[in-house]
Write a protein that binds this DNA or RNA. Sequence first.
DNA 1: TCTGGGGTCCTAGGACCC
DNA 2: TCTGGGGTCCTAGGACCC
Length: 415
Amino acid sequence: MTIGLVDCNSFYCSCERVFKPETRGRPIIVLSNNDGCAIAFSREAKAIGFGQMCEPFFETEERIKKHKVVVFSSNYTLYDDMSKRVMTLLKNYTPELEVYSVDEAFLSLDGYDHFDLVEYGKKIRKDILKITGIPVGVGISKTKVLSKIANKLSKKSKGVWVMNTDKEIDEALKNYPVRDIWGIGSASARKLNLLGITTAYEFKMYKNENLIQKMLTKTGREVQEELRGVRCLEMEEVEAKVNIANTRSFGKDTYSKRELQEAIATFATKCAEKLRYQDSVCYGLSVFVHTNAFKEIEQYYGSGSFVFGSGTSDTIKIIKAAWHVLDQIYRPGFGYKKGGVILNHIVSKNENQLNLFNQDPSDNEKLSNVIDLINNRYGPRTIKSAACGINHAWKLRADYITKRYTTNWNEILTV
DNA sequence: TCTGGGGTCCTAGGACCC
DNA sequence: TCTGGGGTCCTAGGACCC
């Protein structure tokens, strides 16, 4: 019974660093969409006091200058591609890989007990670094929750941490704050503190399981069992998404309905592409727009939803529905700062039920598929609905964006 | 005065994650 | 001037059914 967790160190920063080797050893931060706030920090940046998730960028500019921090806008095209490379390599080290997020994956290592797991972890690290340029940490233990902890401890040693005996595990848990356990957030940590529990070890040993179930629900109870080495969270197949969203802050306050329509159409298009990519259809969507919550002005938050007669993944249909909702929620006079489209009630294309009373033949699957093909070959948005507009006055800021070195021939690295 | 019992389905909201 | 985005799971409670 062994599970490994491989996690890329400061992933976004590391991706940028691969193509800018001159930034080695220098503090790096990566900004969120719209250059709004800091979301990723290199080790050097953490060492000089950065690291607070979502700290507003403009409030840190002084410190950034002072420490000569290298700043990047986020470049998700690059990060996604680098992520795929890392994950593809990781498949070589396990019969079963669960990609948990863009920068981490669980490896089933059942039956590897006779291996020298520390050496195995070191090999994984070395190979990934050599081939992709991304440094990773490897944690190995009995359950997912424990391997998460092992992974965190790996960052403070040489990148690999294995704990498989009860002694090794208890020793680690005694110094591990309950708040830092995977699955225990601030609300649960507060409740556990009330019971006098502050370390992972105390949580593991706490005997009143019924109370834990009551206070932290099933989720919290499973975490407790996992700390005890009992597997509750299995390796999972990566399943199709149940909700698909595309939401953005606008670069400026937006008053014009026309501009909102363009933004909403763009979000809807993006959602529909993701939907088709996973061979699904949706039965409903919701749309929201709201004013700038940070300003002391009259606020308005509008949202509404739409239900389709039968499942669809047709971009045109989805845009029309989203606009219909926008018509209902738009109030003139407000400066909108944020908006989004969320698709829900998603099922596999094969399970789509046609509606007896509403057999809509306009669902143009072929058209959407051809558009996808063209956009895949010639670049995103080569062809799009005119509804999305051209100028994108609402567009976000990205003043420090790097090139798409690995996915676009025109932006390939020059040496 | 007193008001059954056993279900299912859906949704909103909380909590958590990266 | 400026404040991110995209997900999952669980539970309680309402609506509804027989």
